[in-house]
Amino acid sequence: MTDAVTPMPHTGPDVEFAGLDELDRDLIFRLQIDGRLPSAQLARELQLDQRTVRRRVERLLDEQVIRIAAVADPRALGYSSMAMVCLTTAPGANFGAMYDEICAMREVDYVTRTTGPHSIQAEVMCGSERELLEVLTSFEAHPGIRSFEVLRYLRLHYQRAWFSDTDRSPQPRGVRPIGLDPTDHRMVSILARDGRTKFAALSYDLGISESMARKRYQALTRSNAMRVVAIANPLHLGFSATSWVAISCNGAAGWSSVAEALTQVDEVTYVVLTAGRFDIIAEIVCGSHEHLISVVDAHIRAISGVERAEVWPYLELRYKPLLPH
Score class of each variant (00 low, 15 high):
Leu151Cys: 11
Ser288Phe: 14
Arg222Asp: 15
Ala252Asp: 08
Arg130Trp: 02
Cys126Glu: 00
Gly251His: 07
Leu77Val: 13
Ala90Asp: 10
Ala261His: 09
Asp297Met: 06
Met98Gly: 01
Leu322Tyr: 01
Met226Arg: 05
Glu22Pro: 00
Gly254Trp: 09
Cys249Tyr: 06
Val15Lys: 11
Asp266His: 02
Glu260Lys: 06
Val258Asp: 04
Glu140Ala: 14
Ala70Ile: 07
Thr2Leu: 15
Thr88His: 07
Phe95Gln: 13
Leu151Arg: 09
Pro313Glu: 01
His142Arg: 10
Pro9Asp: 15
Met82Gly: 09
Pro321Lys: 09
Arg196Lys: 11
Val311Trp: 01
Arg301Gly: 03
Arg54Gln: 14
Ala93Phe: 06
Ala298Trp: 03
Arg214Val: 08
Gly35Trp: 00
Ala4Ile: 12
Val268Met: 02
Met84Pro: 01
Ala213Ser: 12
Pro91Asp: 11
Tyr110His: 13
Arg30Pro: 00
Leu132Val: 03
Gly144Met: 03
Ser169Pro: 00
Leu48Glu: 08
Met8Leu: 14
Ser147Tyr: 04
Glu16Gly: 04
Cys286Trp: 08
Gly276Phe: 00
Ile178Thr: 15
Asp62Ala: 12
Pro324Ile: 08
Asp34Met: 12
Leu87His: 07
Ile145Ala: 15
Glu63Pro: 01
Ile66Glu: 07
Asp184Met: 14
Ala161Pro: 06
Ala76Pro: 00
Pro172Met: 01
Ser203Asp: 05
Thr166Ala: 11
Asp73Ala: 08
Leu87Tyr: 06
Asn250Asp: 12
Phe17Ile: 12
Val306Ile: 10
Arg67Met: 06
Thr114Trp: 10
Leu23Ala: 12
Asp165Tyr: 11
